[in-house]
Structures are given as structure tokens and as C-alpha cells.
Write a protein that binds this DNA or RNA. Structure first.
Lengths: 350, 350
DNA sequence: TTGAAAGCGCTAACAA
DNA sequence: TTGTTAGCGCTTTCAA
């Protein structure tokens, strides 16, 4: 039972025999305080176990030292890893974090959301919802008169917009080039849902790399999944039927790749000999799939951390001199982890 | 560029030709406003697109309509699913959410954290970090003089403390009973790290259920893992060596079960015929393991939602009459999902 | 039904 | 180096 009423800066001032302003100065490490006074005030603060009221500070400073983050799909591992990166970097830079998770990836209530953050005086916002369909179409209408810096994750480069993303196109290239190096000639693709920008990027990486290698790239060589293991299962079965020459498949995420492994096995296909499989994401479990899965590792934690750094840098700068334009575009490169599902088969003949 | 200065309640009042107090009454649906005035003011608010400053409201009301959540390990699927439940229920109940993720499950900076939340005037806190080792030992010292309701997730029942958890003991019982019903006699266990309360509960459920069935329960029948697939691999290999009679294994999470499947397969054990495997968690991928995994489904999303409901209920009540004691204890029951990894073998003989 | 004044706990501007 | 006086934008008395 802490019966003490809320201790304020006035209590401290009274006890210390100084004005509340002096206490405020001590709190904010203002230089104009004699070291004796400072020491004394600090001691009183300690004794009273006083902590400044952050709400009052925010109101007065018109700065909250709070960031806002909008996310979606935390039940999936990707978004939550990104969030984890965001939380840790936010903390490290001395900010707090206000979080909103959209119930869907698509929402028509953007304005309310933005206003909520605004009314809470957040110093910056990270929009960590990937571009799907036209779920970013509101940008044109709302972005111009938002006076809070807003940084987007996982969407295409865009004029006057700050974006940090992972290079999915490059990741797909890595996957396909690896399969080609392994001598595969008929590389199929199971894509993510193609209204997702990321899925389209991965597919484009596949398409172009295959073509550039002078290999055929036909419609029956790819099937659209929806990221779930179940959809991967359906896709691989269809692929097995409609594209029997297939000797490798680049799957747009590890969950789908998991069931590809399973179905191929059931269909009597040996992996990697008959069919090589490469996934995407680099989830920890992929190392223990049967067989262990070659995959493209995207460091989503880093993505989140990077986004926060970028945003806070801007916030700090913008306080000073000229209003810098805030529209960097960065894209982080994933890397390939080669495992048994695509281990080069020994060429015993040549 | 929104050149308009921040619109305040005064602007609205001036434009509407009323006092700021009247505007405030309209904002808060106070009854004492004539419906004409109300309508008029609302219209002005609309025209100006005015939104009250939440910070100022918090300061004045001494209530923030914000909840705080402390989490850890968001890179794992469990904590993030719980968080997801928390975000959605928080939103649904009209609250905002301030989040802190601990860098480790163990922290010695609890006081700072609590004070941070306190200084931000949160109306309640959810401590969503599972009990590991003595990472909750601070409870005795700090809890008494915290004047914010605090609700814990995933720790043992405790006097004068609000706890919501999943019944891990019961879940383990479900798993083992199922294996016994399938006729298995030598049921081993791969546990989680035993400094985790949840891991101990699951192990206790295994131990007692095995014993109650009149079966032996020896030290060499269980091995401690650390939740990772890698540790599951090591554990099953050791188990295979030191407990060859084993005809079933209850694994404390699905990640470890994944590599059990893999290793058993490599060792020439047929699943489920030679070895039945039951996991814990019910991750979506488990349906696509090879073979599909029987597992104990714990609904962590629900856990999060439930916690928020409980907390907000208390907050709302506590405003009213007598200071109700806040120390409910609830435990949610998991359920079993039976799949191929433990499908009852046909008894052709009897 | 409405308004004026005070205050929430702090910071900022100006004096002293 | 310190203190005084105003706010920050709202809600809460208390009058009218």
C-alpha cells in the first residue's frame, strides 16, 4: 500500500529548499545548477524515490519519446521477429513503444489509427505491414498532411517515402542461381500469394534468373500458394503432375517447403537426387526438416532494428537545423544457407 | 504540410461560440448539453477535424487508457501469439498498449521497468514473461507498493497475485494417457529446460500419469532439452541408446518433436509403429511434419485475450465502489490433436 | 444548461 | 546560478 500521494516536482523542491525549476534542471541535466545544489537535489529525489511524470513531460515538451508501430499477423513468425528487432532497438535508443496490430493485413481505418498515434504525440511511426493488394493506397491521401515522420517496411521504393525492406528479388536470384549451379535444368516455383509484393518479387527473381540462364520458363512451372504448409502440399502435387520434368523447386517460404518435402517423399521422389528444394525465410526449424532445407535467410530482426535506427536518426536531426527530407530507401540483402535438400549430387559419370 | 497549428479545444470553442468547457462536455458525452449545442459543436469538430490530445487528457484524468505489457522472446512463436491475443483484446476494449520486450527472460531491472510504466500512467500491466528460475523473485519486494494492477501470465498460483496460465500439467496428462490408450508400455519424455516452470509442469504430468498407470518411471526414461530442435535431436539419440525398450515418447514442444521424427527415421525406427511421438504446442507446421505430429494444442492467443479481459474488468470495477482484491487465478485447458505420429496400430493378432 | 477558474505535473522564457 | 511566471491541452470543481 503506497499511501504516499503522488510525489511531484514540488514536493522535491520543498524538501530540498529550492524552486521546482531547479529540480527540473537537475532532472534534465541542465548545466546551470551548482554542483552542490545538484547533489543535494539528487539526494532528495533518491530519498523520496521520486520519478518524473512522463505524461506531464510529454505535454510540456510536445515530445513523448514514444514511437508508434503498426503491425499485422503477429501469429506468424516473420512479423514478430521484425517486431522483436523494433522493440530492442527502440529500447536501446531510449524510446518507448506504442503498438497497434491490425486484425487483417488490409484495413480501411488508417486515418483513425494515425490520429490515435498523433493524439498520443508519438515522435515517429513505423508501418510494419507488408504491401498487399492496394493496402497502401491510402498513402497518397494521408501522407501529405501527416506531421509525424512515418517509415514503411516491406513495400516498393516510392518517391518522398521512407522505406526499409529486404531484397526479395535478390534472395530469389540466390536460390535459383544455386540450383542452376547444381546442374538443375527444370526449376519450378511455388510462389506466395501474388497480391503480396514480396511474393511477386521472389517470383520475378525466379523468372528472370531462369530466363537469363537460357532456360525455359513456362506457365505450368509455377503455382501460387498462400504461404501455408497446406497450400504448399497442394501446389507440389499439382506441379508433380503438370511438370514431370521438374528436377528442382524454389519455394517462396519454408512452411510451404516443409510440405513439399513431405509430398515429394510420399511420391517416391528422392531429395535432393530426384528433386532439389530451396525454401525462403530461414526459420530455425528448417535445419531439422527431413532432409534439412536449403533456404534463403532474411534477417527480419535486423530489418526492424534498422528501421528504428533510421527513424530515430531522422527525429533527432529534425529537431536541429533545416527540415531534412525524410525519404531514405534501404534494402537489406538476404543470404543463402545450403543444406541437404539441395546438396550437389556427385557426378560419377563425367 | 499541415500548416495549421495544433487545434485545441479552445479553437473549437471559439469557432462554435461556446466555452471550452462545453466542448469538453460534448467530447465526453456529458449529459448537460442541449442537443442543439451538442450538434453544433460536433459539426465544428468535424469541420476542423479536431481530435483531443490524449496526453493532455491523461494528465488531467490521471488515467491513460493505456495498458503496459512486458514480454520476452518474441522471436519464438509462443510469446508472439500471446502478444497477438493481447493486442487484439486490448484494442477491442478501447485501450492502447505500451510494450516492453526484455532482452532476456531474466532481468534485474524490473524496478526501472515498473517505474517507466508508472510514470506513463498505464492503467494496468500484463507481465507476459514465463517463470524461469527465480526471475519472479522480485515479486515479494516490489509488488506490495505498486499501485497499478499487475497480472501475470504463466507462473504458479500465488497468494494475492493475479495469474492467468495454461494448464501444462493437464496437457501432459492428455498426451501420456493417449499413448497408454494406444497400448504403449515404455513412454519416454524429452522435457524442456527444467528451470522453466512450464517444463516442470509437463514433466510432472508425464511422471505422475505414467506412475498412476502402474508403469515404471526411471531416470533414464527422460532427458532435458532446451526447446530447440537441435536439443531434441541430441535427446532422442541419447534416449534411443539408453532406453531401447522405448515405444513412445512425449516431447515437451513441437520443435524438439520435429527432430525426434527426423532422428528416429534415420535410426530406422518406424513412426508410429516402432515409436509413437507426441509433441506440445500445436504449431501449424506440425500438421505437415513427416509424419504429421500428434500434439497438445495450447491456445496462446486466447491466453492473451483472457488476460486482458481479466485485467480491464478489474480496472473498470476498481473505479467504482470498494477496492476489490485483484488476485484471480485461471488456468486454460489445452487439447490434444491426434495425428499419424501416434495413430493406433492395428492389432492383427488379438 | 452553461461558463470561469483552478489544477493535472512538468518545461520554457524571462528576470533577478 | 537561481526563482518567477506562464503555459502545454485538457478535466473538474463551483458558480451562474
Amino acid at each position: 500500500m503506497s499511501n504516499k500521494k503522488n510525489i511531484t516536482i514540488y514536493e522535491v523542491a520543498k524538501r530540498a529548499g529550492v524552486s521546482q525549476q531547479t529540480v527540473s534542471r537537475v532532472l534534465n541535466d541542465h548545466p546551470d545548477v551548482s554542483s552542490d545544489t545538484r547533489k543535494h537535489v539528487k539526494q532528495i529525489i533518491e530519498e523520496l524515490n521520486y520519478r518524473p511524470n512522463a505524461i506531464a513531460q510529454s505535454l510540456s515538451r510536445r515530445k513523448s519519446k514514444l514511437l508508434g508501430v503498426v503491425t499485422a499477423g503477429l501469429r506468424f513468425i516473420g512479423p514478430s521477429r521484425t517486431l522483436s528487432g523494433i522493440t530492442s532497438k527502440t529500447e536501446a535508443l531510449g524510446y518507448g513503444l506504442l503498438i497497434k496490430e491490425l486484425p487483417q493485413f488490409q484495413t480501411n481505418d488508417v486515418q483513425t489509427l494515425l490520429q490515435w498515434f498523433q493524439s498520443h504525440q508519438v515522435d515517429g511511426i513505423i508501418w510494419a505491414v507488408p504491401e498487399i493488394g492496394d493496402n497502401h493506397s491510402w498513402l497518397d491521401s494521408f501522407l501529405p498532411d501527416l506531421d509525424i515522420p512515418l517509415l514503411f517496411l516491406t513495400m516498393p521504393q516510392r518517391k518522398d517515402t521512407a522505406v526499409v525492406t529486404i531484397d526479395n528479388y535478390y534472395g530469389a536470384q540466390l536460390a535459383v542461381k544455386h540450383l542452376i549451379e547444381c546442374g538443375r535444368q527444370h526449376i519450378a516455383h511455388i510462389s506466395g500469394p501474388l497480391d503480396w509484393w514480396e511474393a511477386r518479387q521472389r517470383m520475378a527473381g525466379w523468372t528472370n534468373t531462369v530466363k537469363q540462364a537460357g532456360m525455359e520458363c513456362l506457365p505450368q512451372m509455377s503455382i501460387e500458394g498462400n504461404w501455408s504448409s497446406r497450400s504448399g502440399l497442394i501446389a507440389i502435387e499439382q506441379l508433380l503432375a503438370q511438370y514431370p520434368q521438374m528436377d528442382a523447386v524454389f519455394v517462396a517460404n519454408d512452411q510451404m517447403a516443409l510440405s513439399v518435402l513431405l509430398a515429394a517423399n510420399k511420391a517416391g521422389k528422392k531429395i535432393p537426387d530426384d528433386l532439389m528444394v530451396v525454401g525462403f525465410d530461414g526459420i530455425p526449424e528448417s535445419e531439422y526438416f527431413l532432409p534439412p532445407l536449403t533456404t534463403i535467410l532474411q534477417n527480419q530482426d535486423l530489418l526492424g532494428r534498422f528501421a528504428v535506427t533510421e527513424l530515430v536518426n531522422f527525429i533527432d536531426r529534425s529537431g536541429s537545423d533545416d527540415p531534412v527530407k525524410f525519404s531514405p530507401h534501404h534494402s537489406l540483402q538476404p543470404e543463402i544457407i545450403i543444406r541437404e535438400s539441395s546438396r550437389k549430387v556427385e557426378m560419377s559419370k563425367n
